[in-house]
Design a protein around this nucleic acid. Structure first.
Lengths: 133, 133
DNA sequence: CGGCATCCTTACAGATACTG
DNA sequence: CAGTATCTGTAAGGATGCCG
């Protein structure tokens, strides 16, 4: 009995660690936005992402892109232009994130509506922040 | 053309926000473990969770449970025992998280194996440290 | 253009002690 | 038992400037 519980706990622990590995790869204030930006355009340059992701600083963009690259979610290519430009794109592995992100987005909508007391409409719902350019 | 891109960007921005809402509900070092603990046992008392989740302090447990409760993922019931005990259980909405968590766990395993260079075996695999940097 | 280095301010989380 | 309060170190993140 106690043994069974312990085994289950171990399984839960592994599960937890796996989820945290996943969360760790996505953590940071901007990762999702960055991935969205790149995935939206297929290929994207540093300064383009800087514009896409509202509010991010070049320091943070650089840092989080590097982390994404280390985690093999994003591929970095230096183009031999003058001055040089750098192109980012999702790796194959990065693309597998899209399902996860879709799930999270879907659940996020439900969740937000749950919390704000609104009923589910679509992903188009709620806030109406200003969006320029 | 520019208009279409802008529309797409707006959609991405909403998507991003939705994902962040979801991530926000799950963020914090212990949330997944706490949810796992509760969900594993159905109902669980404060001190039980404190034991289940290895390394957590009562301060953090209290804080994260409160956040989970605010997010309507967890239901808190004060039992009229002597001394009082408090019981936690997942709400219906909290249970919808399990799919998400499974997805993340699954992806986490693949991801860890990708990063560590091992091939996928099962959820039982590999390292017991944080990935990277 | 695409960064890195530096400085600085806050947010987060651990340890410890205390309360109804 | 189930928390709260306080104190403190660390890490995240913003602002700015410099460089190949």
């Amino acid at each position: 009995m106690k043994c069974a519980i312990t085994a289950f706990q171990q399984e839960q622990k592994k599960r937890t660690r796996s989820v945290q590995d996943a969360m760790y790869a996505l953590n940071g204030k901007w990762k999702i936005s960055i991935i969205s930006s790149i995935c939206c355009f297929g290929k994207r340059r540093f300064s383009d992402i800087l514009n896409d992701v509202e509010g991010i600083s070049n320091r943070m963009l650089s840092k989080e892109l590097k982390e994404l690259e280390i985690n093999q979610l994003v591929k970095r290519t230096i183009l031999d232009t003058q001055p040089i430009t750098v192109q980012y794109e999702l790796t194959e592995h990065g693309n597998t994130l899209q399902t996860i992100i879709s799930n999270l987005a879907e659940w996020g909508v439900v969740h937000r509506n749950k919390i704000t007391g609104k009923k589910v409409e679509s992903i188009e719902t709620s806030c109406n922040e200003k969006i320029d350019v």
